[in-house]
Nucleic acid binder design. Structure first.
Lengths: 193, 193
DNA sequence: ACTGTTTTTGAGCAGTTGATCCATTACTTT
DNA sequence: AAAGTAATGGATCAACTGCTCAAAAACAGT
């Protein structure tokens, strides 16, 4: 066999991810990556292909982290509680991510629509989110927690659009604490009265 | 006196704006600008200073256009009608801007937080928007159109976050028609019942 | 027509970009 | 220990970046 790699792929990927997250795609040079990842230029190309491939792997890794945190924040049994804790977790991410914001939204802002891979990646996530949220919303409607006069899918899109707005605001207003207030506002709206 | 400029500043600024809007800041090279604006490199530097100064002028010009369109879309006398037509206009912009999205949000995604000028520009707009919207909302509360139990400023932030989400979604899902549905959803929520 | 001032022009600067070449090193298996 | 294989390091590529220089051209006032 041959000489084994002297580094752990995930370890250096995390480092690359943070650089892309903080500085964007074009704003991150290969010199930056070499410095941050601590491995040689050629090793990057051998292992991850070109800059764009590396970026996509970082973006996907980022999203997995983000998704894990949102899901692990979900508490309770009622549809309302689960949706509320989900929106709270997103608000918390908006506050705690600070100036770096959401890497996925940053990437859309910078690279969409030219970069089809990024757009497609978002569209897949968007579809899954609508699916998952509207399921939860119709469950809440069926057991009488939520008003039943609105379309679950429309309500899901509403919550997603709001989440995107919250994440975006978190980036330009780091440390802002208003977001959970907005989240509560949006969930209260769905409730039956 | 001296030789006069052979071009109209606003005319070439509009052209530059469209390039920045479509390709982003880093994605637009000076060669691109020279080609699009139809004037010489040196004329750009003489007239507008460096690339970043030119960009900021384009960004401000963009926002003036956008603001004009939102305001001219406002119809009716009641607070509800005015807010609703405002949100509808934003939804319409999201649909009609196509893949280019909102230049201001694109710029935030690409350049915040490194570019303080862009961040500051947004923060000023954000402050003014909250001010203007929460005024309208409290007017609606006072004359009984809206529920009075919520904080006008919180509701304003809610609508702004939603608008940001809608504009972002418009970029990645060009031609989507769901946005006015989301807008109506948000306004209905404020109404007294 | 001349002068003074400014714009315009095209060439070209130094620095950076993503990517590649190739000799060297280091590991695994036999 | 030898052979085979793949990672590594450093130098370097051509292309492109934002920007500047100096000469030429074009206008306004006299």
């Amino acid at each position: 066999m041959a000489r084994p790699k002297a580094f752990d792929q995930d370890t250096v990927l995390v480092k690359a991810m943070h650089v892309f997250w903080a500085r964007g795609y074009a704003g991150t040079s290969l010199d930056d990556l070499v410095a941050a990842m601590g491995i040689n230029r050629q090793s990057i190309y051998n292992t991850f292909g070109d800059k764009h491939s590396l970026f996509m792997r970082c973006l996907k890794m980022y999203w997995q982290y983000e998704l894990d945190r949102v899901y692990e924040g979900i508490k309770g049994d009622k549809a309302e509680d689960r949706l509320r804790s989900m929106m709270h977790e997103i608000s918390h991410l908006a506050t705690s991510s600070g100036e770096m914001g959401c890497m996925l939204l940053n990437s859309l802002g910078e690279l969409a629509p030219q970069d089809q891979a990024v757009v497609d990646f978002y569209l897949k996530i968007d579809h899954e989110s609508i699916q998952s949220m509207s399921n939860r919303i119709s469950a809440g409607q069926e057991n009488g927690e939520f008003e039943s006069h609105f379309n679950p899918s429309a309500a899901a899109k509403f919550l997603i659009a709001l989440s995107i707005g919250i994440r975006t605001l978190g980036k330009v207003m780091p440390g802002n604490q208003d977001f959970s207030e907005i989240a509560d506002f949006a969930i209260d709206v769905l409730k039956k009265r």
